[in-house]
Amino acid sequence: MNNEAAYWITLAHLPKWGYVKLNNLIIRFFHENNLSIEAFFQLSEQEWKSDYNLEYKDVEDLKKAKNDIPNHAFLAETLMNEGYELIPITSPLYSKTLKENLKYNAPSLLYVKGNTAILQEDSIAIVGSRNASALSLDFTDHIAKKAGEENKVVVSGFAKGVDLKALDSIIQYRGKSIIVLPQGIMTFGSGFRKYYQQIINGNVLVISTFFPKAPWQAELAMARNPIIYGLASEIYVAESSEKGGTWSGVIDGLRKNRKIFVRIPESYELTANPLLIQKGAIPVDLFGNRTPDTHLLSESEKPQAIKANNKKNPNNPQPTLFD
């Protein structure tokens, strides 16, 4: 793949092409037609049109993008020189969990630095508010400790509050972690300095799906959330309000029948955690243990809610051709 890096950068950042559209194209040339990305870009416009059913505008987009490949070769060289790796969705290094969870919405290209083997390990995400309470942070610490003991990777989003606590705790317990960046990977200088030891020891992997030089933006932080949820087999929610990234991430996850654990709050806490539990999340105590006899939710309600959701949103609408 190394020599194809410039092609992948070009394809992955085609303006206004969403992941679904990109992945459909990738499946066509890579899996169905057995073409490398380089060979795909060598095809004529006519072939793009006829063999791939691309519309005029799509062909124009690809033509324009093709001119950028030499420029992206310079960028790719810089990235590799600085130790970043590019993992396209066709690579065996790509996280299987991410692919299974997000399906056609999986990002076409990951920019990473660190131990890529972590991507294939069992993983959990700990999510929650930027202004989390002390209890939420305690919960985060306990979950991280448990993950460390069970040799599970902790995925977090490098935001203040729960995210950073999750990262610091798992590092403290000498476990492994994935940091999902809300920015381009080349703009994470201070982070690479801070987690230098963990990265060279193979305990931390940093991931970004954005253009490598993109600075932090609120939209990118939002766009990053599904990646955090997607990279984990289980999701632990420390604290959620009734809107924002955590909330919408959990709701989306519940719709897709993901395993989501939510901390049972104390009665004096003002959180939307009970609401999430009502909507089908699994309640857990401060130590992450499941509590079968929860006072918040009757067992009969929970599966029904999920079943209803499943009917409306079949979680596997298109064939999986990625592997």
Partner: peptide
């Protein structure tokens, strides 16, 4: 670095 660049340039 120039070698690496050349390898990355498109056909």
């Amino acid at each position: 670095r120039i070698i690496n660049l050349v390898k990355l340039l498109p056909k």
